[in-house]
Design a protein around this nucleic acid. Structure first.
Lengths: 308, 308
DNA sequence: TCATTCATTCTATAAAAGTGAACGTAATTT
DNA sequence: AAATTACGTTCACTTTTATAGAATGAATGA
């Protein structure tokens, strides 16, 4: 291999991030043929393909992902330099957060809390998508972190890093009008109307198993994936609800809803998924080691040991 | 400004590090004219000079230093990528430490101690030079850190970062044969033979002022800049010596020399000077926040408060 | 002073990056 | 099943950029 050609690498970076040669060529204001040729030269120079040509799309190989990680470091810093040269100042790029739309908004908000207060220079973008799309975006460095309640499965190509942020017990939530119901499992719960998480969710599975175990025969009024929607239904449907308490934090506080008890051994996990990278976004580092996260982790650790 | 030309930036990086166009052209195996032209283009593209042409040499401007800092981040990462692509592994580059030859070797050794034990992958280079040359090398990213006992003066161009590592009292050291001398200032010290630090050193100034204050009339046997040399003379000359105790740590322990007392208000400061950079060498970060350093700093803090 | 060192400038040439049209497939529509 | 569209590659050719080499100039040092 000769010396690395940084122009080729730059083009590769742009294409890999975009995932599409034609669109990238347009953005770069060159022809696709030129772009294609440059990337071929890079691959030829390296001696191994960076993209697998699958059908009519370009998909990063394992090596491609590795190289993209380096390119990201290199050219993010380069962009910063260019900004400095042009405008005389550098502004921190926005922190790009991806979230699963089914997650608790309250949780997300408390995660981002450090960004909201007294930091004038902190800016961020928030993006709700299905999990596979989020992971794609992450792999392409289009977002910096994914907040999810679903475990990520290991991939050959990509070095995910998944950090458990919090572990919430699943609670039985009742409208204020039903505060006669006992704060423990009881025959009174045998025939009730419920709103519950969608069947794809591990929470739902836990709820079902709980019902079987205690011979409850719930009437499912609604099953909903989206936690924000679930919250509204819990508040307004008059039915009981099974969900992490954090989802309806405000309602519990104001007394509109009340928590009866925790479903034993049913938890919702919150993860922050990132790519293993040398240079993480500074705001992200801050968030991931913020005292709030520590507090949550400590709290959940206590919860766990309480449970045992 | 158009898009940043990374090849130009690469050439600039090489030249700025080397400090010399002709030699760099040779290393790059291109003509000086080509190299000169490329760098001119970069400057033209940026709109401001990166080098000041002083006589027949190229000297970095303030902007030049800034750009070099970015370039260093960019291309160090690039070199790492190239290494990965060629050899399949990345090895941490050596940590390059610059030291003032006049400094205590014992101090340097204890600074580097974390590198010496059980780390198989830690490699470093050590370089003894006069202070101005060390700072030049640092500014050109040829070394990662300068260990010095002399304050750095602030420069317009370069963002030094100077961290106080340790503060050593200056002690009066006597050969074992002279352990009759009292452990406090006393007329017995009035006429004695001494080996002392060179007159450029702040230690020497402190010693002279001490002598004046207590009306000592020292016979100066030798004045020496180099602490390693001073150590030998203290051991072998039979004269008294004024120096930080750490310099003769081993001799004090073995009893060949003995410390009589500390010269009041005379200290030698040890600094680690680095460039303010986004991405510091990982080994260096480790050293600068090693528990040994903390211990020293705590000890010296106590010393200071004792003195007050 | 005169040779030496080092960077710059100029012209010609070599190398590279770029264009645009033609081509090959895979996916999608009719 | 045929036509259409989307997307990447290949090829012949043009434009742009990088480079060599000789000439120039300015500072340094013997």
């Amino acid at each position: 291999m000769n010396r690395l050609n940084y122009h080729h690498l730059y083009y590769f970076w742009r294409v890999a991030k975009q995932g599409n040669l034609t669109a990238t060529a347009e953005k770069l204001a060159i022809s696709q043929s030129a772009l294609s040729a440059q990337i071929n030269q890079l691959e030829h120079n390296i001696g191994q393909p960076l993209f697998a040509r699958e059908g009519r799309t370009l998909v990063l190989t394992e090596l491609g992902h590795t190289v993209l990680n380096y390119a990201e470091d290199i050219f993010q810093r380069g962009e910063e330099l260019q900004q400095l040269l042009k405008r005389g100042v550098i502004t921190l790029p926005s922190l790009r957060i991806g979230m699963l739309s089914s997650m608790s908004r309250n949780f997300i908000e408390s995660f981002m809390e450090p960004l909201l207060k007294d930091k004038t220079d902190a800016s961020f973008r928030l993006l709700a998508r299905p999990q596979p799309e989020l992971l794609d975006l992450l792999a392409q460095h289009q977002i910096d972190v994914v907040l999810t309640n679903r475990e990520v499965s290991l991939s050959d190509d990509i070095a995910w890093q998944s950090q458990l942020l919090s572990r919430q017990a699943v609670s039985v939530i009742a409208p204020a009008s039903r505060c006669d119901l006992p704060e423990y499992i009881d025959p009174a719960y045998k025939h009730q109307r419920w709103v519950v998480p969608g069947s794809a969710s591990p929470l739902r599975a836990a709820f079902e198993s709980f019902c079987t175990q205690h011979q409850l025969e719930p009437e499912i009024v609604a099953e909903v994936d989206d936690m924000a929607m679930l919250r509204l239904l819990a508040r307004d449907s008059g039915a009981l609800a099974a969900m992490p308490a954090v989802v309806v934090r405000d309602e519990l506080q104001s007394g509109v809803l009340s928590k009866r008890f925790d479903v034993p051994n049913a938890f919702e996990n919150f993860y922050a998924v990132t790519l293993k990278r040398k240079f993480q976004h500074p705001l992200l580092s801050e968030l991931l080691q913020s005292p709030m996260i520590d507090a949550i982790q400590q709290a959940t650790a206590e919860q766990q040991s309480d449970a045992h």
